[in-house]
Amino acid sequence: MRAWKAVLLIDLALIIGVGWGYAFWGLREGRLERELAEARAAAASGIERQWRVEGVVRAIFPELGVIVLTHGEIPGYMPAMTMGFRVASPKIHEAVSVGDAVRFTLQGVLPNVAVTTIEKIK
């Protein structure tokens, strides 16, 4: 066999080998990413979830049924911030006042969540 043909064959084999390895790797990564996204979507949709979070009461809007809380991270939903949450019943916000450090339960199907329990800590 002529040397240039042999070289061509070797190069082709190398290109195919490296390309196949790269494609295999890429495909596997793509599959993993898809699975992760599916798992996330399954976790997020249609299923009722519940969190226990700590925070501080910053404001109460009784007429709207909303309580504003500075809270820690709500895993899988939102990072730490100050924002308003719906309360499940008026009784809930009557038990606390502005400045109270609290532990509260957030419950519901995203994005329709509401504070279902709240108690002062310390």
Partner: peptide
């Protein structure tokens, strides 16, 4: 207790 001392009115939302 600094937040409570500022009171509920007007509503203080910043840290």
């Amino acid at each position: 207790d600094a937040i409570r001392r500022l009171g509920p009115d007007p509503r203080v939302m910043f840290p």
